[in-house]
Amino acid sequence: AEKTGIVNVSSSLNVREGASTSSKVIGSLSGNTKVTIVGEEGAFYKIEYKGSHGYVAKEYIKDIKDE
């Protein structure tokens, strides 16, 4: 049951290796980017990222929809 969301930041949002603010940053997404959410862990969504997965803070994702 995948969902999509939109990155809701003015600059960019860090994509992390794990569901923690201390996890390594593996990339970033600019505002209004559409993401595919494959799961959630605590305050983070697990998303599809560059052929693999990454984690982003839930508070910066809006317009969550079921695909």
Rank of each mutant, 00 (worst) to 15 (best):
S10D: 08
E17N: 14
S10T: 14
G39K: 06
K46A: 07
E59Y: 11
K50I: 12
G51C: 05
Y55C: 00
S10W: 08
T36M: 09
G5D: 02
D66M: 14
G18W: 11
D63R: 10
S12M: 09
H53K: 08
T33F: 05
E67A: 15
Y49K: 00
R16K: 14
G27L: 03
K24I: 13
S22T: 13
S12N: 11
V38H: 06
K3N: 06
G27S: 02
V7W: 01
S52N: 11
A43W: 07
G42R: 06
F44A: 03
G5Q: 03
K58Q: 09
E40M: 10
D63C: 05
V7H: 02
N8K: 10
I37Y: 01
N8T: 11
G27V: 03
A1S: 14
K50D: 09
L13Y: 03
G42W: 05
G31L: 08
A57T: 07
H53A: 06
I64F: 10
V9G: 12
V15D: 00
G27Y: 04
E40R: 04
V9A: 12
V38R: 07
V25P: 07
V9W: 03
S23R: 04
I64Y: 15
G54H: 02
A1T: 07
V25S: 10
T36Q: 15
K62Q: 09
S20F: 11
S30H: 15
S30E: 09
L13M: 04
F44C: 04
G54K: 03
T33H: 10
K50Y: 12
K3D: 03
A19S: 06
G42E: 07
T33S: 13
E67H: 13
V7R: 01
H53I: 07
N32A: 12
I64N: 08
A1F: 08
D63H: 15
Y55E: 00
S52E: 13
G39R: 05
E41S: 09
V15E: 00
E17W: 06
E67K: 03
H53E: 09
I47D: 00
D66G: 11
F44K: 01
I61D: 01
S23Y: 08
S12T: 13
K34C: 05
E59W: 05
L13K: 02
Y49L: 03
G27E: 02
G18K: 09
A19M: 07
T4N: 08
F44I: 01
G5T: 03
Y55T: 00
S30N: 10
K34E: 08
S30P: 10
Y60I: 03
E48T: 14
E48V: 13
K34M: 11
Y49N: 02
I6E: 04
E67I: 12
K62P: 02
V15I: 12
G18E: 14
N8I: 08
G54A: 11
S28K: 14
S20M: 09
I37E: 00
K3E: 03
Y60V: 04
K46E: 06
V56F: 01
E67V: 12
E40C: 05
S11E: 11
A57W: 13
T36K: 10
E2A: 08
A19E: 03
L13I: 09
I26R: 03
G51S: 07
E17M: 09
Y60H: 13
A1N: 14
D66S: 15
K3P: 04
T36P: 04
S28L: 11
K50N: 13
S23H: 14
Y49F: 11
G27N: 02
S12F: 11
I6A: 05
T4G: 06
A1Y: 11
Y45Q: 01
V35D: 00
G42A: 13
S10E: 12
S52W: 10
G31E: 06
S28C: 05
T4A: 05
V35N: 00
G27P: 00
V56E: 00
I64Q: 11
E41R: 09
D66E: 11
I6C: 05
G54P: 01
E17Q: 11
G27H: 02
T36I: 13
K50G: 10
L13C: 04
E41M: 11
T21W: 10
S23G: 10
T36C: 04
K62F: 10
K34A: 10
E59R: 12
G54V: 04
S52V: 12
V15Y: 02
S23F: 10
V56C: 04
E41Y: 09
Y55M: 02
V7T: 09
G5E: 03
I37P: 01
E67C: 05
I6F: 08
A57S: 04
E59P: 06
D66C: 06
K3Y: 08
A57R: 13
E67W: 02
F44P: 00
G18Y: 11
G27W: 06
S11Y: 10
E41A: 06
N32I: 04
G18R: 07
S22H: 13
